[in-house]
Structures are given as C-alpha cells and as structure tokens.
Design a protein around this nucleic acid. Structure first.
Lengths: 188, 188
DNA sequence: GTCTATAAAGCGATAGAC
DNA sequence: GTCTATCGCTTTATAGAC
C-alpha cells in the first residue's frame, strides 16, 4: 500500500475533479475516497468541517485562478482587444481541460445555492465588472460595455451547458470564438 | 388531515417545483413529501420506479410544454420575426415563473447526466434545429442560421445562470431582450 | 498525516392495512 | 389512492491507534 503523504493543495485539486465529474451533492465521501485515493482520516484532517469545507476550498482555488489568469490581466490591460483575446483563449482552455464544468455555475442550483451565494455572486459580478471596465476604458459607453460584458459571460456559461448537453466540444469553442468576435467588433 | 386525492399530473407539477428549488439529488423523499404534501405511498403508486421515474416524468412534462409552446410555433411560423418574438416572450415568462431554472440544463451536471443524456441532448438539439430552420427559411444561410440558433439558446441558458448568481431578474430579461434583438437584426 | 472501526442519522424503497 | 411502519443500505462525521 502506497500511503502517499500529500498537502492540502493536492487534496483540493483532486476534490475539484470529483465535484466537476459527479456534482457536489452526489460526490459522496466514499466516492471521493476512491477517486482521489485520499482516506477519510486525511480528508477530515485537511477539512475539519467536512464537505462544506471541501467545497469552500475548491471554490477558493478556482476563484484564485480566475483572479490571476483572467481578472487581473483584464484590469491591467493596455490594449482592450488583446485583453479580450487573452480572456477567451485562457477561458476556453480552462473549461475544456476541466470537464466543461464551471463549479461556480453549478453552485447556483440546489441546496448549496444559499451556502455559497456570496462567493458565487462575487465571482460573476467581478468577472462582469472587470470586463465592463476594459471595454469602457477603450471608449465604449458605460451601459453598452456593461451589456456586452454580461452577454459575453452568459454566452460562455450557456456554451458550457450546450456543449455538455450535445456532447460536442466544437459547440463550446464555436460559441467562445463568436463571443470574442462580437466583443472585438464592438471595440473597432 | 386533508387526505387530498390527486392525479399524476398534479404530482408531476409539484415534483417539478421541488426539483427546481432543491435540485434532483438533494430533493430527498422526505423533502418531497413535506413540500408537496404527497405521501410516500402515493409517490410510489404514481412512480413505481421511484426517483428515476419521477425525474423522467418531470422532464417529459417540460419537454411537452416546449413542444407545444416553443418548438411547434417555430416550425409552423409564417413570419420568422414574429416567431422569434413569440419564442423570446414565452421562454422569458416560463423561466421567470419557474425559479429561473431549466431542469434539462440541471441534468447536464452530476450523476444524473448519463441517465438522461438522451432526453437532454434531444431537447437542446431540437430547440437549436427548429430555430435554425425558422431562420434559414427566411433567407439566412444554413451555417449562419445554425450559429445564430446555438448562440441564442446558449445566451438564454447562460442568462439563467447569471440571473440566479446575481439574484437579479433584470439580468435574465435583459439578456433575452438583446438575444431577440440580435436575431431580429439578422433577419432584416 | 494516515488508517480503520464505528456511531448516528438519513436515504430510497417496500409491505400491508385502510 | 393514501397511510404508516419498517427494512436494508449509505451517508457524514467521529474516535483512537499508529
């Protein structure tokens, strides 16, 4: 028996995978144990409050990734067109390589909705706000920029649903490409 | 104690409400019993195979509603502009009055994904196909019509996620309005 | 930090009376 | 068609050895 010793970050990454594949409710501790190879003891050592702690940690890790890779580049971008191109590229890679599931979107359904309402709202509000800012700084009016930003984030999220439903990655990549094109057209 | 006697359709409607509010996995039989007022006995009388039967029945009822109210009007429409306006109007009313949850979209996550993959795929594929047909018949090229249709359905689904996440109905109604406008612009 | 055993509660599903 | 009682199983969470 290997009895591997790992740190909390490894556990969080493994948990994120399980939650994406099985959902938060369905991903029982037995399943988590099997699919991650982490025993009950370790799980409760890292996450004393159980599943709620695990979900919190996973969401925080996703949030951190978006802060670094998506939100901050949009905030500090010189050229809005490049920033939008960068956003669509990294977002597409991110979701395609992670089972086409957005864990924050998943948290808008079911019981866990209320538990993580604050974090979920902040994630989407910040994404929209920071994209609105990028568009606005390059000359688009406030209201137009806000509409374009909401529509873009919604398109990406809807694209994830459609690509899972139709079981076809091209649906998502097509939607992301056209979303980028629409933003680009508004910038010129 | 009332001991109300009801038929299967009443039960299906009540179940749909519970599944929209709590999710399919979280909606346990105890919760279903409490929130619908239907006892375990009645539930298993109407749905002998248990929760899977209940989910199947609820999805079938939603599918029937969309066939009548959305898909068929799009198929038989004379004027594409009117048909699109009708679609956006009834779809907006439907989801706003039903907790901003699309049960088919909810079924693209978690365990139940595989169980209902066929029905989920058919729902979204038919919606996209029938809308593509409406746009194509009014002169839009095949590929363009298909892209517009996928984008429109994705926008609506993404709009539901965003409106739940931001807890603001105006987000959904705004997205639906602009989606209708975009389709309308393509038709002129 | 990891393991196993186990407690306590909740789950879906069934049986049989009414 | 509805009710209640109950079975068997799985769940989350804990305890204590290593």
């Amino acid at each position: 028996m290997p009895r591997t010793v790992l740190d909390r970050d490894d556990a969080v990454r493994a948990l994120a995978g399980v939650f994406r594949r099985r959902g938060f409710e369905s991903g029982s501790l037995s399943v988590i144990q099997q699919e991650t190879g982490i025993g009950r003891g370790s799980l409760y050592h890292f996450f004393p409050d159980g599943k709620a702690d695990m979900a919190r940690a996973v969401l925080a890790q996703v949030r951190g990734w978006f802060d670094e890779q998506v939100f901050e580049p949009l905030r500090t971008a010189g050229d809005a067109g490049e920033a939008v191109a960068h956003m669509t590229q990294v977002v597409e890679e991110y979701f395609v390589s992670r089972d086409r599931v957005c864990l924050f979107a998943a948290m808008t359904l079911g019981e866990e909705q209320e538990t993580f309402a604050r974090e979920v709202r902040a994630y989407f509000a910040d994404w929209v706000d920071v994209l609105t800012g990028t568009l606005h700084r390059s000359g688009i009016s406030g209201p137009d920029a806000a509409d374009l930003a909401v529509d873009a984030v919604a398109a990406i999220q809807g694209g994830l649903i459609m690509t899972r439903a139709l079981d076809d990655d091209a649906v998502f990549t097509g939607i992301v490409a056209r979303t980028g094109r629409r933003l680009h057209a508004a910038l010129s």
